[in-house]
Structures are given as C-alpha cells and as structure tokens.
Design a protein around this nucleic acid. Structure first.
Length: 423
RNA sequence: AGAGAGGUGUCCGAGUGGUUGAAGGAGCACGCCUGGAAAGCGUGUAUACGUGAAAGCGUAUCGAGGGUUCGAAUCCCUUCCUCUCUGCCA
C-alpha cells in the first residue's frame, strides 16, 4: 500500500510512476485525495465534538462527587445533541476511511527509477547473461522424458493421488529435491540468514500484509472450514513474522531464510507452459527475506541478486538476469530482477528466481517500522527473493547436465546427493 | 471437542463505572553521586490519526468487534487466543 503522505505530497509524480507500471486507473489517485481530504475534515469535527463530550462527562463526574445531583442531571441534557452529532460523524468517518482504504489498496506499488517502461515480458531488459548454452548430444530429451527414463518423478501418479500439477518425486529424484533444499538453506545460512520454518497456512491478515489479498485471492488455495490460505510462497508467513514490530535501527537488517512447499492454483495456465515440471500446483522453494533500512535497501537488493547468482554458478547452469519492465512487474514490487535458467532441450528460458525490493509497500500494510535517532518511527523496506524454486532448477539440471551415459550432478551438490550421476 | 480460568504498557502486576493513557515494581535512557563501578537519588520511557514551523494540543486505543451509560480497562453480547482438567491424536 502506497503511503498516503506520498500521494498527498506529489500526486502528479505518483500518477506518472503508476503509468510506468502500465496502470491506467489514474483517476483513483484523485479519488483517494478527495477521500483523504474529506476524512480529515470529518475527523477535525468529530474530535472536537468528542472533546466537548468528554469535558461534560468529567464535569458530571465532579458534580456527582460533590453531591450536586440536580446540576449533574441538567448537564446530561447538554450531551443529547452532541451524541447525535458524534454518532453521525462517527459513521461518516468510518465510511470515508474505508472508502479511502479500499481505493488505496487498489494501487500497485510505485516502480523505482530503474524500472524500464514496457508492457510485456518482451520489454524486460536482459541485465546479464552468463554461461554457455551446452551443446547436447543427438538423443537429448526434455526433463519430463528424463524423469520417466530414470524414474525420478511421476506426474500421472500425482494425478491419481491429488490431481494435475502435484508431482510425486521418487528415488534419486526425491533425494535430489532434498539435496537442493539443504544446499540452498546452507548457502543462505552462510550468507547470514537466519533459518526459520514457518507455518504453511496463513490467516487473512498475513495474506493481506504481503499483498496477496485482496486482489490475488484466486491464486491461493483456501481452507474454508478454518479460513486459512495455503501459502503460495514462504514470503508470506516469513515476512509477517515482523508484522507490527518496531525495530531499533541497529537491529537492521533482519535476514531470514525459509524452506517451504508452495501452493498455487495457477488458474488459467495451459499448454507447453505447464508441461512436466514447468508449472505445477505444489513445489518446493527456499526463500530469502530481508527487512532493511530504507537508505540501504537497494544495496541489499544487489547483494541478494549476487547470492542467487552464486547459487546458479555453483549448479553450473546457464542463466540470465532480467530487469523487469513496468508492465511485467508484480503488484507489490518497486524493482524486480528475474533469474532464468536456459532449458536446453526445450530451447526456452525458465524463471527460477525473482528478487524484489518492495520498499514500504508491504511494511506499510504490516506496520513494520524502525526507530531513528530522533525516536521517530519510520517504515522499513522489505525485500525477498527465491533462492531458489526447485522444479525448474531440477529441469535445468536434468536437461543441461544430461550426457549419453546419464545425468551429472554438479560438484557443489554432490555432498548433498551422495551420488555424482543419475544412471 | 467438553468443563473451568484468564487476556492490561518492553516485562511483571494493580485496577469491578467518574479528571485512569492507565497505580506500583522491574527493565531501559539520561543526569547527579563515585577514582571507577555497584548501590542510592532525580528525570524520562506506547502507538496511530488529526492539528501545528515547533513545543504542544485534540481524538482513539487495556485481545478484536458490537452494545448499555452523561461517562467503560471496569457491566452486557459476539468472536479470537492462552492456560488447567477431561476426551481424541502424530
């Protein structure tokens, strides 16, 4: 949620930035300002009346104590009209406040100055491309064929048990999953992140805090009996750990890493996008989250990107880094870098990580602040990134490291798998 | 899931209708004292919104939401959570 102060101070700049994100309902900005003005005007009146009510109540209290019952009863009459007025104003205030909130929540985050204009994925900027695309042997196969060939995962079996998009990992495929999770977590811990194991279901307040609600409701699985959402990413429970907290400036940054399964309904996805492990409803991911001082958050974003990059290098995968254009960025983000691994057998890039700075968009919703040297409370910045999402990494490893005689496990991963080759 | 108890500030803890944003204590910060420290003494120590250049002032907040009342932390209703006992269970 954009801070109202920013909209109040520079509505035109806000509109201009929103249009970089391809957001066209700019009239919302004016409506917000109008509601804001109205709200403040009502609050002034309301506070004034309540102040008078309070004063009279106190006087009545004193009169009763002094035993002046008649005077006290007379005073009561004075409050009648005030009570009516304050009741009306209270309603109007609540309405206006809600109207402002409902509008405010519809605005996506403002992109930072580095975000390129653009509408679709085509307009993203390739910031960096590393690693040669391997030349595969003649019988090279896509990962779903390799999964069958080496009995690593079974999608049909998942259909039987649950439904489409719920893979069953088997044998060395299962071990590879576990190895990657441990590897990613250990690397995060080495980089100073504190490991947490969060709940895999969240309440409405948490889903609101990170920006999943209200607009992305349909993307999450919802347990109606208990009003809980299955998490689409560990970002949601992990970032909410600091909800409503006020930190000492010295405590920043807060660095947390978590492994969790992720559940996504992925309504509307189809075709070659969903082949094999390309897009599934349940997958594993290690997520890194930081809560940082506003002045340092972009430095932190760079360091998080460097961390993800080091993982891709350790796994010996060809990758590229994209700086997302305004139109392709998520609702909550101010700047996002996507990491893609080249799927050689499919001849396409697969997104394996997304690292974002949300600035105050999430922390404003969650009220995550720090206290500066003047004891003022100021919103922190929040950042997160996948480090990393497993299925497409698995796809990348299987496809890029396949040889005639089997699939080679990158050296860095061998201590975790306990084998150096899948045959 | 059933029965009972309870949810107050950073923490402990008082408070069952009247100047209570909230006693007291601990902690923390600053100052005095000290050669230095401890002890002691003094001062300060919530958040949000509104208003103001600022100091400040106003309003709201004692799990959450609603109600009674001139007035609610205190009474009533709803709801969430915690603890104890019983049941069930990895």
């Amino acid at each position: 949620m954009i801070e109202i102060q920013i909209i109040r101070q520079s509505p035109e700049l806000v509109k201009q930035k929103l249009s970089v994100k391809n957001f066209s309902d700019l009239h919302l900005v004016d409506e917000i300002l109008q509601a804001d003005e109205e709200r403040r005007a009502i609050q002034k009146q309301l506070d004034d009346i309540r102040s008078r009510e309070n004063a009279i109540a106190k006087e009545i209290g004193v009169l009763f104590k002094e035993g002046k019952k008649d005077e006290a009863e007379a005073k009561k009459a004075e409050t009648v009209s005030l009570k009516e007025e304050s009741a009306t104003l209270t309603n109007r205030f609540a309405e206006t406040e809600k109207r402002q909130f409902d509008l405010l929540v519809q605005l996506p985050n403002l992109p930072c100055d580095l975000v390129p204009k653009g509408k679709t994925a085509e307009d993203n900027i390739v910031a960096k491309q590393v690693g040669d695309i391997p030349v595969l042997h003649a019988n090279a196969q896509p990962h779903w064929e390799l999964g069958k060939k080496y009995d690593l995962f079974d999608l049909e079996l998942g259909v039987k048990i649950t439904g489409a998009g719920f893979p069953v990992y088997k044998g060395k495929g299962a071990k590879l999953q576990r190895a990657l999770i441990s590897f990613f977590l250990d690397r995060a811990i080495e980089a100073g992140y504190n490991e947490v194991i969060p709940p895999h279901m969240v309440n409405e307040a948490s889903a609101f805090g990170t920006g999943q609600l209200p607009d992305k409701e349909g993307q999450m699985y919802f347990a109606t009996a208990d009003n809980l959402y299955l998490i689409p990413t560990a970002e949601v429970p992990v970032t909410n750990i600091v909800r409503d907290e006020i930190f000492d400036e010295k405590q920043l940054p807060i660095k947390m890493a978590a492994y969790s399964p992720c559940f996504r309904r992925e309504a509307g996805s189809y075709g070659k996008d969903v082949r094999g492990l390309n897009r599934v409803h349940q997958f594993d991911k290690v997520e890194i989250v930081q809560i940082q001082h506003p002045a340092k958050s972009y430095e932190t974003l760079d360091s998080m990107c460097a961390h993800v990059e080091s993982l891709l290098q350790a796994l010996e995968l060809p990758y590229r880094i994209l700086r997302l254009c305004g139109g392709d960025m998520s609702f909550s983000s101010a700047l996002t870098y996507d990491f893609e691994v080249y799927s050689t057998a499919q001849q396409r890039w697969l997104e394996v990580s997304s690292v974002s700075n949300f600035e105050t968009f999430q922390t404003n919703r969650m009220k995550v602040r720090y206290r500066d040297e003047n004891k003022k409370t100021i919103l922190c910045h929040s950042l997160n990134g996948s480090a990393m999402a497993l299925p497409r990494i698995v796809a990348g490893i299987l496809e890029n490291h396949q040889k005639e005689d089997g699939i080679y496990i990158p050296k860095a991963l061998q201590p975790y798998t306990g084998f150096d080759k899948i045959v």
